[in-house]
Design a protein around this nucleic acid. Sequence first.
DNA 1: CTGACGATACAGACCTGTCTGTTCATATGG
DNA 2: CCATATGAACAGACAGGTCTGTATCGTCAG
Lengths: 210, 210
Amino acid sequence: MSKIATNAAVHGGTDVRDRILETASELFYRQGVRAVGVDLVVEKAGVAKTSLYRHFGTKDDLIAAFLEREDQDFWGQWDGVTARHGADAKAALDAHLGWIGERVGRPNYRGCPQINVAAEFPEADHPARKVAEAHKREMRRRLKVIAERLDVTNPDELAGQLSVLINGAFVSSQIFERDEATTLLRRAAAALIAAGRAPTKPVGETSASC
Amino acid sequence: MSKIATNAAVHGGTDVRDRILETASELFYRQGVRAVGVDLVVEKAGVAKTSLYRHFGTKDDLIAAFLEREDQDFWGQWDGVTARHGADAKAALDAHLGWIGERVGRPNYRGCPQINVAAEFPEADHPARKVAEAHKREMRRRLKVIAERLDVTNPDELAGQLSVLINGAFVSSQIFERDEATTLLRRAAAALIAAGRAPTKPVGETSASC
DNA sequence: CTGACGATACAGACCTGTCTGTTCATATGG
DNA sequence: CCATATGAACAGACAGGTCTGTATCGTCAG
């Protein structure tokens, strides 16, 4: 039963905390946060309820910790993609969109946890909402960094458009055909970049392309 | 359904049912479905609990009815926009995007109810999820009808991109600056249309615009 | 008299969070 | 090398509230 080579587990170890958080994360994501009670988390994690409340003072704190974990996970993978394709900005963006498209196309994909939790908890001051909001702002920030290397007139605008596109993909998995997401995202991004290189035109007129 | 105009209210009238549904809709949208109990709906609507359960056999049925109501409302307004700007396809699309942008920019905007409820109820067979899924498919279908009048090579692809963009706007209200949504949506749509008119190119290369 | 409606109590389940008591590995003092 | 203190973790009962859904009874209009 005891784990880990260097004890680490016992006496103040983070082993129990990790097990709780991992179990809670899976249950929260698959079934929804409000649908999962702490008793279920405790049972599935094989820990005592007292342990849960020692490490996370409140269920709300556990929810926030869940989103923080997802946040770290997400940016960890994002950075992994960046590391593999960081040279050219366009290639990096395509790689990120490919990664996101693959992600939303997975059979058990259930949407972006940040968006889902935000939908479950409208109260603006809920601790989990702050995590979710920071996550979305971080996404736009990172996209802007990429956009600035893409030789467009208005990198912030492009970052906003790409943010909307990606968030849209997260919540639109239902309407995608098989493996449609990646192609859709990449072509859309390419169109937005191309348009962003021409001087910004008034939006009202069609301007009959070039 | 249409329950007659004359007496209407009393004796089998839809008055009580409407009041319940309207009250529930507002509470569900503002606070989240799971956060609102039937007791609260009953109290705010000023009806008896028995009446709620007579008209809606189950809370789940009430939730589904809520989404159906929102669905009808949404397409009613959509059709209103179409009626006012239906002549030119591009103008109609811009009008719809303006309407959506204005909608997501409202102070108390809380996201698309269909998306929110779907996030709250992961179970695939939940009655409300079916309504939500049908709603999203209907959106793509209608966008395709518009796309077909836009002289693009692949109307279905454009419809998919626009769907993602619109759904993204619904869940991205947090990251928008004041009144940014409409402009963002319209410029993005214009870019997608322009790109859709050129023959589809492989996505890998940048192709340096035109 | 019929049937929709209001009011209210109730059942049974579930929820979060607390409290008590026990086990056990480690750290420390002698 | 033994004894004791420390504190995390386990186990489970419990409190107090909320939830959905039902059952009962009175009212009132057509």
